[in-house]
Nucleic acid binder design. Structure first.
Length: 296
DNA sequence: AATATTTACAACCGCGGGAGA
DNA sequence: CTCTCCCGCGGTTGTAAATAT
């Protein structure tokens, strides 16, 4: 990971704990946006924070990173969680992969504070309740349960997604809009953008199949769609944040996993210069992200 | 209005796995 | 092979806000 002991801080400063102040958030955000996180243990040193790397990482992933969808869970999201929890047990990170913009921590918390009770109460009238065989031990069980019966269209499509490939289960595409339940999903593959970019299959296929095909429109149309998705999302920069921007990507992956808008095999780099017009946010915009991408 | 209790969510902790030295 | 470091995950705890008494 290029982040071994040489990068390690020599003396350990006392680490602050507890809630993050706005100033700390600011520092961390600025630093990561500008430099990327690289090795998390060096982030607090370089960013001038008295936190440990782990804490920084968590704060970034769960709260600061762009693309997080804050606020109430939609009923569809709720259903998805219930369904996936039924399938996977407490595999929050896996469940989170199917809920773009939501973090595993958020989902976990939501489960414990809302859904668990809801299911416990029986909530007979709802689909959610039917998802479970309502023996109470299901609820806290960490092991995935066998599917006994699941007949909602959503469930089937979920199953399809999960069965289709090991990759598919982990990579969901940025959805183009927060549309209500759609029986027929977008024809686009369900992949996170960044994950899509980092797929092995992408490496092997993309340059001929997508990015560097003679018909470059293919890639550009994907990018268009992606960007459209980003901006259609109309992240209200509520609370002075940019959380809703890029809601459907997995921005942590974007930052951490060498996101490159380039053709990896052709050798000649094909960067895509997204232009987002005015600075939507002085601290973060696509350009600054792209700059990060360029530099790493 | 003051206090106690509950709720919701942010953050911490510990563990396991992967990778490099 | 062992050690060390880092990352990611899931469980748990802490705390602020909301609600009840």
């Amino acid at each position: 990971m290029g982040c071994k002991s040489s990068d390690k801080p020599k003396q350990k400063p006392k680490h602050r704990k507890g809630l993050w102040s706005p100033d700390e958030d600011q520092r961390l955000r600025n630093y990561v946006l500008k430099h990327g996180h690289g090795c998390w243990s060096s982030v607090p040193i370089n960013a001038g924070l008295q936190r440990n790397g782990k804490s920084c990482r968590l704060r970034w992933i769960n709260y600061l990173r762009p693309g997080l969808k804050r606020g109430l869970f939609s009923s569809q999201e709720e259903e998805t969680i219930l369904t996936l929890h039924r399938l996977l047990g407490n595999k929050w990170s896996q469940i989170a992969q199917h809920l773009p913009g939501r973090t595993d921590n958020e989902i976990k918390n939501y489960w414990h504070s809302h859904l668990k009770k809801k299911v416990l109460k029986g909530d007979q009238g709802t689909k959610e309740a039917n998802v479970y065989n309502t023996t109470s031990d299901n609820l806290d069980n960490n092991s995935p349960k066998k599917i006994t019966m699941m007949q909602t269209p959503d469930f089937e499509s979920l199953l399809m997604n999960m069965e289709n490939s090991s990759t598919d289960a982990d990579q969901s595409v940025p959805r183009m809009s927060e549309s209500p339940k759609q029986p027929n999903r977008s024809s686009l593959p369900k992949l996170m953008f960044a994950e899509w970019l980092s797929l092995d299959s992408f490496s092997s296929l993309s340059c001929e199949g997508i990015m560097s095909s003679k018909d470059q429109n293919v890639s550009s149309s994907f990018q268009d769609n992606f960007m459209q998705g980003c901006f259609l999302n109309e992240g209200t920069f509520g609370n002075g944040e940019y959380r809703n921007l890029l809601s459907y990507a997995s921005p942590d992956d974007m930052f951490s996993s060498q996101l490159k808008f380039e053709c990896q095999s052709s050798g000649n780099e094909q960067f895509v210069d997204f232009s987002c017009g005015e600075d939507i946010c002085s601290e973060f915009n696509m350009r600054s992200e792209l700059r990060y991408i360029y530099e790493h």
